[in-house]
Structure formats: C-alpha cells, structure tokens
C-alpha cells in the first residue's frame, strides 16, 4: 500500500522516536510512504485560538500540496493526533460548508494554490495498520511476542473525537489499539482512562490544572498494575512522560508509569532493538517493564516492587469485557 505522509512538527523532534519506530514498522508491513514536500505546521490547538480563517488556511496549504503531489494514492496519513484532526477537520468543513470552502480557497489563491475538498482521504497511521494491513498480517510478522507485559491502551482525545469521518469504533470506548496490542502478544488491561485528556496545552498555562489531569491518568494506571501505557499521540507522550516527575513533586507521590508509542511496541514484537526504536529516551524509565519480556537496556533495571493486592472494601463491580463491541 502506498500513501502520502504528513510528519508534523512534533515528530521531527520531541516525538522523533515515534517517527523512527513507525518507519521501521511501515517497512516490515510493506507500507510505502512518501512525505508531503514542504509541508507546514498544522497549527496544533493554538492557531485556531488566534485566528479561525488563518488556522484553516495553513492546513489548506498542506491539503493542497498533498493533492498536487499525490501520485497513485489519495490517502494522506498522519500519526500525530492533532495533525490528523486538523487535516480532517479542515477538509470536512470545506466539504460541508460551501462558504467556508470559498473562504479557504480565497486565502490559498494568494499563494497560487487550490484545494478541492475530499480529494485526499485523511487517515491516522493506527487506522491504516488495523484496517488496511489488518490484524492477521500484523500477527504474521510477530517474531518476539510481548508475553507477560501488562499494557494499557491510551488513545487520548483527538484521534477518536470528534472523528469527523467516523473511522474509529467509538469516541470514548474504542478498541482498535487493544486488539492490536493483543495480536502482539501483550497482556492487555482494560484501561478506564483510555480516552481521558493528557492535559493538552495546560502544562504551559496552569501547572496545577495540568498536574491534576496527568494524575487522573497515571494513578489508575498504577492501580491497574500496568507496566507500560501505550500511546499514539506525541502530546500525550510528552505530558505523561516529561511532566510525571513534576506532578509527583506537586502531590508528594511517587508514581512511575512509563509510556511508549504503539509503533515502538510493534517494533519490539517484530524483533527490532530498543535502540533502533528510539526506546530509552523517555523520562520515566521503561527498563523495569521491558525486563519482563527479556529486554535489557543500558541501564541496570531496578526490580519492580511487588504490588500489594488492594484491599478494597467496596462491593465487586462487573467489569466491561475488553472485547465489548457495543454501539455508541
């Protein structure tokens, strides 16, 4: 399968391990991706807070470039949730609102560009892997199953909400990532906070609000004895990983929940080394978790403390099966 790829700013640097590991996974799965030439920033959540027309015009430029450069494919793939959503939303609004389409194209014409809404299909890398490649084809490539590793799927927000093209199973209880991790051989925990916000830009605006939101993700992960959280979003990775220590200081806690990209876990299961996958660049040490699947990083893994079983006095509650396929 061939597609155009929109890397986005985060994946050039802070989420470089995501890009590196994704490229290896694409290679293994026979996915042929070509980067959009001279793409610009998608504006994240900030440009639309300053100027609506401009925020969509800059995304329009990316869509127009993709339309021009598309050859033998009409799929435009992004792996960053914010980039994916911004590309999806601009295309969607241009399709559903003729005035808005004219507005964005008016701005684009100043740069000699034009975009016909709907001419590229915006997709997320996870969507491509589970729906185009498929679980069976992924399973065939697994050489080192992640047996014994307790993982929690963490989607965050923007990949599943508002999901303008209805590509995912559910906006709050999706199951694609869990199914993928299960195919890799991992022990998948039903993580209740899987589509709760990582705090987004609040780390830059109000630390207290941000720490509170980060704790809402990390604490339940510890309680569920999750070895590693698995994400598909650069912002989620950065907030949960880089700010976890500050959050601990703020609350006087000592939570330690490492978080990796799904492509890194796929890479491990496909037999790539941690170094090739950019593992080891996290703030929260992932070595103790990976020691469970026979992986050792440069640092000596500190043995994970045996967690005491919770003495929960409340009545037992029924658990939603992970494979719940209920409608929305």
């Amino acid at each position: 399968m061939k597609y155009l790829f929109y890397p986005g700013c985060s994946m050039q640097r802070s989420a470089k391990p995501y890009l590196d590991s994704l490229k290896l996974v694409e290679k293994t799965l026979g996915l042929e991706s070509v980067d959009v030439e001279d793409w610009n920033c998608c504006g994240a959540t900030e440009f639309s807070s300053v100027n609506r027309t401009a925020s969509h015009a800059i995304v329009g430029r990316n869509l127009a470039l993709a339309q021009e450069q598309a050859s033998g494919t009409d799929e435009l793939v992004a792996a960053c949730s914010a980039c994916y959503l911004n590309l999806s939303k601009t295309d969607h609004f241009m399709r559903e609102d003729a005035d808005f389409n004219a507005l964005v194209n008016d701005a684009l014409s100043a740069g000699g560009l034009e975009y016909e809404p709907g001419s590229v299909k915006v997709r997320h890398s996870l969507d491509i892997i589970v729906n185009n490649v498929g679980y069976d084809a992924v399973k065939e490539k697994v050489t080192k199953p992640l047996s014994g590793l307790r993982v929690g799927a963490y989607y965050g927000c923007m990949i599943v909400r508002p999901d303008v093209n209805e590509r995912f199973s559910n906006p709050e209880e999706p199951y694609e990532l869990e199914d993928l991790l299960e195919v890799l051989g991992a022990e998948v925990v039903d993580f209740k906070m899987k589509t709760q916000c990582c705090s987004g830009h609040m780390t830059q605006i109000s630390s207290e609000v941000a720490y509170d939101m980060i704790k809402q993700i990390v604490k339940p992960a510890v309680e569920e004895e999750i070895d590693v959280l698995v994400t598909l979003c650069p912002m989620c990775q950065l907030n949960i990983d880089a700010f976890q220590n500050e959050m601990n200081k703020h609350f006087g806690t000592n939570y330690e929940v490492p978080i990796l990209y799904f492509s890194q876990l796929m890479g491990l299961a496909f037999g790539y080394t941690e170094k090739e996958l950019g593992i080891g660049k996290e703030f929260v040490n992932v070595s103790p978790a990976l020691a469970k699947i026979g992986k050792t990083t440069e640092e000596v893994p500190t043995p994970k403390k045996k967690k005491k079983s919770k003495s929960d006095p409340s009545l037992p509650m029924p658990k939603m099966p992970i494979h719940y396929r209920g409608g929305s």
């Binding site: 640097r13 793409w39 609506r52 969509h56 560009l113």
Partner: peptide, 27 residues
C-alpha cells in the same frame, strides 16, 4: 535528541505568508 535549539524554516515560506496575510484580511 528530542529538542532542537534552532528552528526549521520551510522552503516556500513566502507562499505561506501570502496565504496568511490574505486569511487575516478575510477574517
């Protein structure tokens, strides 16, 4: 290696700026 201390500029920044200026007028 997760943070660049110098910015990256796109090649056709002129084009982007023309689009932006027009967008500000339209808004």
């Amino acid at each position: 290696g997760r943070l660049d201390i110098t910015p990256h500029k796109i090649k056709n920044i002129d084009q982007l700026q023309k689009i932006l200026n027009r967008a500000y007028e339209l808004e």
